[in-house]
Write a protein that binds this DNA or RNA. Sequence first.
RNA 1: GCCCCAUUCGUCUAGUGGCCUAGGACGUAGCCCUCUCAAGGCUAAAACACGAGUUCGAACCUCGUAUGGGGCACCA
Length: 501
Amino acid sequence: MKPVRVRFAPSPTGPMHIGGVRTALFNWLFARHHQGQFILRIEDTDQKRYVEGALELITEGLRWLGLDWDEGPEVGGPYGPYIQSERLERYQQWANWLVEQGKAYRCYCTEERLTRVREIAEKSGRRLQGYDRHCRNLSEEERQRLHDETGGEYVIRFKMPLEGQTVIHDLLRGDITFDNQELNDLVLLKSDGFPTYHLANVVDDHSMEISHIMRAEEWIPTAPIHKQLYMAFGWEMPQIAHLPVLLNPNGKGKMSKRSARFSEDGRAVPVLLNEFREAGYLPEAIDNFLATVGWSFGDDREIFTLAEAIEAFELGRVNPAGSAFPIHKLDWMNGTYIRDMEPLRLAQLIKPFLEDAGFEVNIEQLVGIVPHIQERIKTLKEAIEWTQFLWVEEFVLTDPEALIQKKMDAEGTLQALRGAYDVLVNLVDFAYESQEAAIRQYAEDNGLKASQVFNILRVATTAQQVSPPLFQSMAVLGREESLSRIQKAIDSLEKSNQPSQ
RNA sequence: GCCCCAUUCGUCUAGUGGCCUAGGACGUAGCCCUCUCAAGGCUAAAACACGAGUUCGAACCUCGUAUGGGGCACCA
């Protein structure tokens, strides 16, 4: 059996799309499972869409996810170069070879004519949309005339067989049959000398000895053309599987940056890999999650490592149907990874998020609070709201009314605050256990429910109704700062309690 | 308009002719735990798109219909 060689072939048009990431993951898992090679190839054949720095975004993203490549940019390999713009002569040679063989032809049609033809075809409801094969059978005189008229600018189009059928054997879907008369004479080589995807992917997959093509479902309609190209070249076509697409979370349409990127609860859903990263998702969670959409482990396992996925990965288990992007499941899964993480490591990962939010982070305090927010956050970014009470430069309690708990009044609240202050200020040590024992005792002695006093103190020290566990929070905050905040709460309550004059 | 693909709980999925009174997970609801919020534990509601075949037997095979998705560029 031929060695397994698969490729991931993104275009450098910006950050990776999460759908592309999953395609990369499936290819990578397949390669690793079969001890084959995973090749990264950059398809930068559209100069108009080229984005500066996009290549770095792609390689960085793949590395972040732990998807290493055996051949490709930065690592090289025996089949290079792996960037298509550096392989131009090959495509030109092969395109010209097809012309010489009578299997392709030069087309001199202008963009205006093409647009017009397309419009007419659309309006007339013609069976075959697109190009009308105007230049397919030009006489030499006509060709020469057009050549002169257009200043020698032309594209090379593939001469698609006009009859018969082309069958694609898809590893996931079985045989897919197309009538050749439904298929267009696609452009192989553009007028700027760059190849189109159709030519480049065939030439490269063949010359790089790719054994299996796993690409997105939207390529199915052009697969027969690619097959015909392989036949025209006399090359064996790699095995092929079309992977299902990722749909928007509401199931409406292909997941994309531009279309509805909102889930049913109205939240914005990330689409690009860097958006997931910035939102505070972990690479191991993204890997695990993506592997469960369109593929399943086999037993009922949902949480598994990349190594386990390699072991279990089978193309046959890939579900060919497109799937709505289950963003809520990602949240849950990311949460499980956060909970299982070493607190110290988690703290390191959270730190940059806090700094980006403009906070100056005390690392000791961060390490102290992390174990208490760990089971409360689903993304790293959520650590901001849970810990901001620690980092604010000047603590202000904007709404002293919030101190007053249910079934209590301002006077009672004030008394409780003063009482709690006295208890805490006299504590020998400020460990959370000591605080809790003392405050519980105080509540009991004064006929208050412990939770009432706790919540008053929570608001007083964090200015939030919801916080990490109170005494742990105060312990991390420190005795001095905690007491100072409680004093401030007392002051503000006294002030607002005075009858206005 | 034409071509192509797909169709199991709200969502992601298990299921490859009898093991299915259809399993798991997320989400949802209830209860327990509890200093808020979580996490955790328990419980519940929730699906084979429809119609014809094939077969002793169909979620699984075939054909139609419906619905959803993809494609019809000198973009990939």
